[in-house]
């Protein structure tokens, strides 16, 4: 039985046939690139010859050429196709290969399969169905992955911003299990409308975060109280090195017009301004002050407990 999973590790437009892209997935360094036909590949970012990163190398018709000695590796198999200076009658041993990963490209993301055996399950981005203009980005945030996921439950307002919207720290109930995610709603209010979130009888907005129990696929929705979706975001997260977290995201504003929204929201919509921001810079003081609450349910995850005890 296969053990492993798909990870969304890059935005599809970030991977080219011109320049290899180094990424980190669960602490493992990978390099992504395309061939001339546009097919995407992923190799371990480590030459098996002298262990230097392959990502500063150059792309050739034969694959990715290591910047140190020029060994060239096939994208699909990882097999070394060429060693410079070998005579024409010399062959590269078949066992000379870089570690290759299966790649799937869908929904605007490059996914890699990390694990043994044949891939199973759906891609992390499968539930993301954009409608309308997308806003995307990438960042490495200064937080461990397990802390990032916990914060997405306990205080998403520390990680996300929505112009014209204040996300409150009032949780609407308990996290509920939905397949491989924990789902939690936070109350939200329009900025500049009413006398402040402390005095609202019912929150006019809901921020719903779906935090993965396995993997790194985070879904965020900004909804009206009647559950009309305003904004949907998919954030692909994974552990980077030294206790940081890599993020790649796409999101969009739904077509619904909300009469109760403030004028600024309507104007931003008309101007095509981004309806959300995934914060690349998190405020340490805010994170530190955040009390553990719904993430209690998340830290029961064996893997995350282990990660938090042994941050990379």
């Amino acid at each position: 039985m296969a053990e492993g999973q798909w990870w969304a590790v890059a935005l599809t437009e970030a991977v080219s046939s011109e320049k290899p892209l180094p990424v980190v997935c669960e602490g493992e360094e990978l390099v992504l690139f395309r061939n001339a036909a546009g097919q995407a590949f992923a190799l371990e970012d480590r030459c098996p010859h002298r262990r230097v990163p392959l990502s500063p190398g150059v792309l050739t018709p034969g694959g990715l050429q290591c910047p140190y000695h020029g060994w060239t590796f096939d994208g699909a198999s990882g097999v070394c196709r060429e060693i410079p200076n070998l005579h024409a009658d010399e062959r590269v041993p078949a066992r000379h290969a870089a570690k290759a990963f299966l790649v799937a490209e869908a929904d605007g993301f490059i996914h890699v399969w990390r694990g043994s055996g044949a891939p199973t399950g759906v891609l992390p981005s499968a539930a993301y169905r954009p409608a309308g203009r997308e806003y995307s980005g990438s960042a490495v945030v200064n937080m461990a992955h397990c802390n990032y996921l916990e914060t997405m439950l306990d205080g998403p307002e520390c990680l996300l911003a929505f112009p014209c919207v204040t996300i409150t720290d009032f949780f609407l109930g308990e996290p509920r299990r939905d397949d491989k995610h924990l789902v939690l709603d936070h109350g939200g209010v329009w900025k500049g409308k009413g006398i402040g979130p402390a005095f609202v009888r019912d929150h006019p907005l809901v921020l719903r975060t779906r935090v993965p129990l396995v993997g790194g696929a985070i879904f965020v929705e900004l909804l009206t109280a009647a559950e009309v979706p305003l904004v949907t975001i998919f954030i692909a997260s994974t552990a980077n090195r030294r206790g940081t977290t890599s993020l790649n995201w796409r999101g969009f504003r739904h077509a619904h017009k909300i009469p109760s929204a403030p004028l600024a929201w309507q104007l931003r919509r008309a101007a095509g301004r981004a309806p959300f921001e995934v914060l690349a810079e998190v405020k340490g003081a805010s994170i530190a002050a955040l009390r553990v609450a719904p993430s209690l349910n998340l830290t029961s995850r064996t893997r995350h407990e282990a990660e938090c005890r042994n941050p990379r």
Binding site: H49, R51, H69, N85, L86, V92, R95, H96
Partner: peptide, 10 residues
Amino acid sequence: DRRRDLSSRF
């Protein structure tokens, strides 16, 4: 490293 470095005759 359990994975030994690969080498060519060079």
